[in-house]
Design a protein around this nucleic acid. Structure first.
Lengths: 345, 345
DNA sequence: GTGACAATCTGTAACGTTTCAGTGTATGGG
DNA sequence: CCCATACACTGAAACGTTACAGATTGTCAC
């Protein structure tokens, strides 16, 4: 006999709540609440009855109610830098995350920050306002203040890329050491011996991984490095292109490139051609790519695929796992690069 | 003398709430609440005092509390199809939206749906669970059930692309009629007269716009169309490539293409070259692009830029405007294409 | 018949916010 | 001196949920 339960004349019926369910089943709200989450002290039949009715009328717990009472937000936040990466893999990561959280109660919120900001700002905001149960970050550094902060505050997170602080936390990473190594070995196998590396952004962990993989493989195969330190993949297309062209006009120019990103590769190839040289004849380029488009660009390009959708899924799984109580150390994964793929394989 | 306000020994101090503020200022929570939102019935000095203290201790309203009490979520949802568009503009839209909501209390949640689902599903979910104050959708159709549904339910939204149902709602659109027209006129101006169109996905509104712009300009300049209906930009790279190659082997092949998306353009060019023809000599291609990469791909390509970051910003502004009470009809914008840009201009 | 105990259910309070309906105090008109 | 009124502030209730501390049965041992 609860006036609250009547639809105000003709309007959309109010969303069902526990109270609605309690009224319909003749039980108390407490009982309904527990019945819905299979608590043991509820009779089997009551439980079934409540769940049936709930399903019938399409009951959905009110997120604000749960969040206010329990502090649980059912939100995962993906923290992104808004000013990097042209040919963007961001959508792939998002889709990967989405895939995993699709049949959970979790929502994905995107928290951006700009170049000018302290990368710690968005993290602090999320933690201080309790806006998420878990956080995913990228552009990870060997000594990453964000990871340190989140560990201190005890909030579950996963990093795209590893850290090197002697602290254990979930991550997903692509094996850039292996990538650089295989790239070098492949170039050596087709007779290239003077190699240049288009590095990841200086300061990120995988910068080091890539450098090491490159260097180790170089000495392995007895090839030599042509220093190209003035360039990294987060520079503008124009800069990379110009510097590549300059490099290729020198007498001691490289005959092979290893590039850490597709967009940079486009610029490198443009620079090579600006210098009047020809891909596949004067120089070969191995590049990482995240979409299968580089082989359309120049058929002579050699590519290694990195799957960002997979990264997104793994990262989501890791955070959810940590939230669910798994050991952080058990939620780490490393993704192996595909073989180097020439266009005609 | 409220025990709640004491930090439990050494732990992180609890987040300040209205109660904390009330305790510190010696006022009632009601007064504090009103003082913070500049209600007129609060004394000027009290107001200043409360706001000062709030700022000092970094008070942030609890989202769950507000949401539960008022129903306001402070959330905008971007609804995305997870299985289309390879060279993805999604990140740009997200960044555009982020830019606008950055200094508002709004959060951005990404709500995905897959090809297999009814596109209405995610919308229904959002509306029924009251998970967002405003919604942004893309892949808009002339008669769009999602727009119709949201209008019925009275939830603010904006569409990326227009509808054609005689109903008024906020949108942002790129002027694809103008794009196709200018593309045709440019091709005609350099002597091309047999043109093919790589269309947007059939069924979306801008498919029609593009077709009309193409057709109208064709008859304007007296060029003719080479039918290429078997291809649209949401097909796979391989399909587009193959069909382009087939088309180019026919005697009545086109000498010009207008392409609605960069990824498709890569495939078209590959197909052209598969057929042994040369871009810029045998055929010219005008393509839309969202990142400045196509000119690196083939310098002979002619491009028109579409700015998705701008689209994201405009869409966000529109939704926020509608939420804020503006007239839906005043929240519509159309973005003009850049001129056709040859690589050497 | 009593007490113990398990099984099943329930009311109340609390999370943080805003709204409603006041309360108390000063000011001014008559 | 009283009443009206404006002003500045306040307590209680409510949003939907869960946790805590019971309450009501029925069963069984003794």
């Amino acid at each position: 006999m609860d006036r609250d339960q009547t639809d105000r004349d003709g309007e959309t019926p109010a969303r069902p709540t526990l109270k609605t369910l309690a009224f319909m089943t003749g039980l108390g709200v407490t009982t309904v609440s527990r019945a819905l989450k299979d608590a043991p002290e509820i009779g089997a039949e009551t439980r079934r009855r409540v769940q049936l009715v709930a399903r019938q009328i399409g009951y959905r717990p009110n997120r604000a109610g749960v969040r206010l009472r329990t502090g649980k937000t059912n939100v995962i936040s993906l923290v992104l830098n808004t000013e990097r990466e042209i040919m963007s893999f961001v959508s792939d990561i998002i889709y990967g995350v989405s895939e995993v959280i699709a049949d959970t109660p979790y929502h994905l919120i995107v928290t951006p920050y700009s170049r000018s900001q302290d990368p710690l700002d968005p993290i602090r905001y999320l933690v201080e306002t309790g806006s998420a149960d878990g956080i995913i970050i990228s552009r990870t550094q060997p000594d990453d203040p964000r990871a340190r902060y989140m560990l201190e505050r005890g909030i579950p997170f996963a990093t795209h890329g590893r850290t090197d602080m002697g602290l254990v936390h979930p991550y997903h990473d692509f094996d850039n050491y292996a990538f650089a190594g295989e790239a070098v070995r492949y170039l050596a196998s087709i007779g290239r011996s003077r190699l240049a590396l288009v590095t990841p952004p200086v300061g990120l962990t995988y910068y080091g991984h890539t450098l090491n993989g490159f260097a180790d493989a170089l000495s392995d195969v007895g090839a030599s490095e042509v220093p190209f330190n003035t360039v990294s993949i987060d520079q503008s297309i124009e800069q990379i292109r110009m510097r590549t062209a300059q490099l290729m006009q020198r007498r001691d120019r490289p005959d092979g490139f290893v590039s850490s990103a597709a967009a940079a590769t486009l610029a490198v190839v443009a620079g090579i051609e600006d210098a009047g040289l020809k891909l596949g004849r004067d120089v070969d380029v191995v590049s990482k790519q995240s979409s299968e488009l580089l082989h359309l660009f120049r058929r002579e390009l050699l590519v290694v695929n990195e799957n960002f959708r997979l990264a997104g899924s793994e990262l989501a799984r890791s955070v959810l796992g940590w939230i669910g109580g798994s050991e952080p150390g058990s939620l780490q994964s490393l993704s192996k690069p595909s073989e180097v793929l020439p266009y005609r394989g």
